[in-house]
Design a protein around this nucleic acid. Sequence first.
DNA 1: CGTCATTTAGTTGTGCACAACTGAATTGTG
DNA 2: CACAATTCAGTTGTGCACAACTAAATGACG
Lengths: 159, 159
Amino acid sequence: MTTTPTADWLRLDQQICFSLNAASRAFGGVYRVVLKDLGLTYPQYLVMLVLWERGDLPVKKLGEHLRLDSGTLSPLLKRLEAAGLVRRERSARDERSVEVRLTGEGAALRERALEVPRRIAAATGFDVDEIRELRARLDQLTAALDAAALEEMPGQGVQ
Amino acid sequence: MTTTPTADWLRLDQQICFSLNAASRAFGGVYRVVLKDLGLTYPQYLVMLVLWERGDLPVKKLGEHLRLDSGTLSPLLKRLEAAGLVRRERSARDERSVEVRLTGEGAALRERALEVPRRIAAATGFDVDEIRELRARLDQLTAALDAAALEEMPGQGVQ
DNA sequence: CGTCATTTAGTTGTGCACAACTGAATTGTG
DNA sequence: CACAATTCAGTTGTGCACAACTAAATGACG
């Protein structure tokens, strides 16, 4: 008998979600330390990563890359603007849209950020292949959960 | 040449942290749907899990199990108390301590929560062994990150 | 052309995470 | 016993996530 009794599923240490949360928060702790020099929080760092990689973007596109909506991004971008790292400019072509542009200071910060991923990777104690494998697992998990979330939506079904 | 250029480390899709965050938020989305019936948020559910498993506990112990401090737990527990699921009582023996006790209603809620883990597990699309393995990986990661966070603390060193 | 649905940022409100602090109770030490 | 250090819960302030909403601009269609 290798099946698990229902009640045991409730046991805290059986919950992946708990492990995932713990890992996520532990990451947050390491990032907090590493990013303090750059004056960035972790979500702000993610926004900067996207801008460094893809160049200037409207808020909408930024949100798609990061899976964040304007409710999260609007105040975050204001803080980045107050820090002098980005500017926000209404698009001339479409006045609904706001372009987020790196300032010189924001672009320059990339140099100092180059060592961040290596420090983080070192902190994990994982080698590159282990990281890659874990990442693949997590992405698979995310995809499954997103699909399931749609199905669970009452009266909505799958599109 | 299989080594990765430094600049590529900055690429968003190479960041485990991003995958981890995405998975964590995707989990949050599924839990939000599944727990809505119970009237619980996901962190509130975690608190209830601990209480169901371990019985009444002081806030301190609860925080140790969940890696949360009073700044997070105090308002959360107030909301659980307002919902009638727990009571908070100053310990007679040590008046600094506050015991968190399940009410009858709080204890009864466990019955309805029994199906939650199975629904979540189903949503992941992973089988029991895959879940177990992922969990082990994540716990290993968390332990490494916690250790690294201590070392990174400037001027603090390892104890 | 005018109307209406859609798109896009932004705002508001709720809840969580965490740092820094307060204040009360307890413990350790002389 | 007195008093300093520690422990514990709570509060405050900042920042993020997300739902629900607003307001303005755009686009589609009759």
